[in-house]
Design a protein around this nucleic acid. Sequence first.
DNA 1: TAGATTGTTAATCGATTAACAATC
DNA 2: TAGATTGTTAATCGATTAACAATC
Lengths: 210, 210
Amino acid sequence: MKNKLPPPTVKRLSLYLRAFEGLDHRGVTHISSKGLSEILEIPDTQIRKGLSFIGKTGRRGKGYPVRDLIQRIREILGLKSYIPIILVGVGNLGTALLASKLMKQRGFRIVGAFDVDVSKIGKKFCDVRIQDDSKIPEFVKEYGIKLAILTTPGEAAQHTAEILVSAGISGILNFTPENLSVPPYVKVHNVDFTIEMEFLNYLVNSEDLE
Amino acid sequence: MKNKLPPPTVKRLSLYLRAFEGLDHRGVTHISSKGLSEILEIPDTQIRKGLSFIGKTGRRGKGYPVRDLIQRIREILGLKSYIPIILVGVGNLGTALLASKLMKQRGFRIVGAFDVDVSKIGKKFCDVRIQDDSKIPEFVKEYGIKLAILTTPGEAAQHTAEILVSAGISGILNFTPENLSVPPYVKVHNVDFTIEMEFLNYLVNSEDLE
DNA sequence: TAGATTGTTAATCGATTAACAATC
DNA sequence: TAGATTGTTAATCGATTAACAATC
C-alpha cells in the first residue's frame, strides 16, 4: 500500500464499492466504466483512471468484473467484514450513530461507548454498555481498537482526544467543531455538518445571483 | 456574487469565520494570516489567497480586522442570523440534528420537521412539531424555505427529494446514501459518515504500511 | 474478425504554494 | 522611517479530462 492514492480517488472508491455491491446484489456480473458513469454521474474517464490505480482490474471490450472489484476495493481500503470501533460522547449525535444501521452495514461495529455523565454510565444503548471515559485505555488495548468516533461537546474534545491518543487509537473521526491537536502518527478526519450546511447555503445563494 | 469562489476556499471561509468569531469573543481586533495559520494549521499563503478573493480585506503591516472579516465572510456565504430550514425524516439522526445546538448556533433553524410515521406525527421534539410529509409544500411556501435536511431511510430518499423539489426547495443536505436525481437548479450536497469512516480507515491502514 | 471498452499518455484545468513588490 | 504583513503574480503541484492505441 505504498503508492498513496489521491484522496479524492479514495473517496470515490467507496462510492464505486457501494455501486458494485448493489449491482452484484442484482446479479450483474460486469459493468463498463460508461455504465457506472451513468449510475453515479461521474465521468467514465475518471472511473477508469481511478480503477487503474488499483491494478488492471477490467477486461477490454467487456467491462469490470463486479465481484472481483468488490474484493479488490475492500482490500485497498483496508475494509474487513468486522472493524471494531469505539464512540466517545453519548449525546444526541453519539446515540444516533450508535443506533445507525449504516455504519454497521459497512462493517464498522461500535463495540464500546464512553461518556463522563454518571447518569448514562452502566446503561445500554443498542447492546452497547456505556462506560466511563477512564475505561478507554484498557478497553482499546483489550480489543485492539484502532478507530474512534468523537462526539463529545466541543469543550471536552481536546482533552478526550488526548485520552484516545494515549490509549493507542490511530484514527479519530471528529464530529466536534474543535481543531484537535494530536501527534502526526494519529489521523484525524473532521466531519462538520454546519460547514456542509454553510457550503450548501453558498451554492444556493450564488446560483441565485448568477 | 458572480465570481464563483473555488469550492475548497468556500469551505475554508467557514473555518476562518469560526476562528474570527472566537477571536472577536476574546477581544482580539486584528490577526495576521500568520497568526490565523498557527491557529488553524492552514498555510498563511492559502489564507491570504482565500481572503483576497473576497476583496482587499486586510491592512498591510497590521493584519486582518476581525470584526470586518466576520461581516464580510457572512455576507459572501449568504449567512443571516436566522436561516429557516426544514428536516425530513425524524429517525435517530434526524432527531439528533433537531436537537443539535451547533446548527442553531450557526443560524440554521429547523422550523419544520416531517415524517410519514403516524406514531411520530403531531409530537413535538425541541419545540418543533412533526408533520406529515404531505404538509411540506404548503409549509415551504408559507415560510419561504430554501434549504432542507434529508434524513429519511435510503429507500424513501428519492421520492422525498421529489416532494422537496416540487415544493420549491433549492438545496438539499442529503444524509442518505442514495444518489439523488434532481433538476440542475436544485443543489444537493451529500454527507455520508460511512464514506468518511472508510476514508479514515484507509488513512490509518496506508500509514501502517508505509 | 469486428465491436466494445480498457488502460495509459498527454493536455488541460484548477488549486496550492512561493516569492516579493506594494504599502500600511 | 523601519518593520510587518498584505495582495498578487508566477511557479508548482495535483487532479481531471481527452484521446486513442492496445486488446479482450
